[in-house]
């Protein structure tokens, strides 16, 4: 399996409210991360938004992006995390 692409999965879990996509997009845009895909749904009572972004051209480190997203999530009252896509590749694809 190929690894180490620049793609990350950003997940937002919590109560739906105005401005979540805008806030996450803004953090990614500020870091020059390119959003490749986006989806949202309601699962098990949670609002779930998932973005795939390419950070290979990002202006800051992945750790920094992750920290900014988590901080923004706290101010919005939702949980935001970013994980490298390999974790999903390995778990769900053979």
């Amino acid at each position: 399996m190929t690894t180490s692409s620049g793609r990350v999965i950003v997940s937002v879990i919590g109560r739906d409210r105005v401005g979540i996509i805008a806030a996450v997009s803004a953090v990614l845009a500020e870091a020059n991360a390119n959003i490749l895909d986006i989806s949202q749904s309601v699962m098990e009572e949670f609002f779930v938004m998932i973005m795939m972004a390419d950070i290979s051209g990002a202006s800051v480190s992945f750790a920094e992006i992750k920290q900014r997203l988590q901080a923004r999530g706290e101010s919005l009252g939702v949980k935001i995390d970013a994980q490298h896509e390999d974790v999903f590749n390995y778990m769900h694809r053979i």
């Binding site: 793609r7 999965i9 997940s11 879990i13 490749l36 895909d37 986006i38 989806s39 949202q40 749904s41 699962m43 098990e44 949670f46 779930v48 998932i50 973005m51 795939m52 995390d81 994980q83 896509e85 974790v87 999903f88 590749n89 778990m91 769900h92 694809r93």
Partner: peptide, 16 residues
């Protein structure tokens, strides 16, 4: 709806 190759269910399963 999927984000590239992963369904929201799969992503949520991993997170859970």
């Amino acid at each position: 709806m999927t984000v590239s190759r992963f369904s929201p269910q799969e992503i949520l399963e991993t997170i859970r």
